[in-house]
Amino acid sequence: MSGPGLQTTAAERTRERGAELLRLALIFGLPAVFIVIPLVTFLIYSFWRVEDGQLVREFGLGNYVEFLRSDSYRFVFGRTLFMSLQVTAINLVLGYAAALFISQRRGRTKYLMVLALIVPLLMSYIIKIYAMRGLLGTNGQLNQLLMAIGLLSEPSDLFLFNLTAVRITLSVVLLPFMILPIFVALERIPASFLHASADLGASPWQTFRLVTLPMSLPGAVAGAMFCYVLASGDFLAPELVGGTRGFTYGRAVFSQFGMAFNWPFGAALSVILLGVAMSVILLAGRLARSRWADR
């Protein structure tokens, strides 16, 4: 126990310093060991190779060269990035409209709608994909619906086990990630800004274009970032609804750690994905950073 004296004893100081060191070790040490070092290990792995089922720990660019030489990998890579872009674009339009609509509701309605967005967010990812598979199949309810309203005369297999199925599934599954950041950004715009704009003579449309839209842009950027990064790296959705025609880059990576068992090559493929993700995150950071924010 510390005495009533004003001076700290040597023992107290030692103990304090010990506690402080332990604290720093936990705070900085654990993330370093379990986040930074694994990422670095995995980066190093991408330069090694496998020969006759044995790991060869020698530095080399072989894996990257193989990726660049292989038409099929480059094709799948490009196709996946483009598909992610489509998913992001669709969700940006749908998500912004929905977020705007919800933010204009009041009281309880608004609260319940937001809750209804968060519920699917915390639902098991694969369950949602599984549910989509049921809906999209040849005997699925989407086909039933389209036939019932006369758009189709017989069940179509267009919606399952191809890239369209992956697009639809990812769009649906990632929608809350798009809507919520936009909604939060819209909610943060004080009503007095909208009042001021109208007071100065702006029509509702002008107020939307000149005040609401630019001020909610950081939210849209964040939503688009989540959407793109998650879509481009996903392998569960294509695995479950993509079939053989819906092969994506994420599956290519995943397969290296399963049947192919070529970990270094898989690591290299994911380092390329990591590069894409990091570029998107940095780009989003730059876009969302406002010149006008308090600093």
């Binding site: 379990f34 986040i35 070092i37 694994p38 990422l39 290990t41 995995f42 792995y45 970032m225 990064v229 998650l230 481009s232 790296g233 996903d234 392998f235 994420g250 990576v253 995943f254 750690f257 970990w263 898989g266 690591a267 994911s270 994905l273 990591l274 993700a277 990091m278 995150i281």
Partner: peptide, 17 residues
């Protein structure tokens, strides 16, 4: 980082580690 990066990368890096 693990929250922002695709989960596949977090999973893989830990696996390799």
């Amino acid at each position: 980082l693990p929250f922002l990066l695709p989960p596949i990368i977090t999973g893989l890096s830990l696996l390799v580690f």
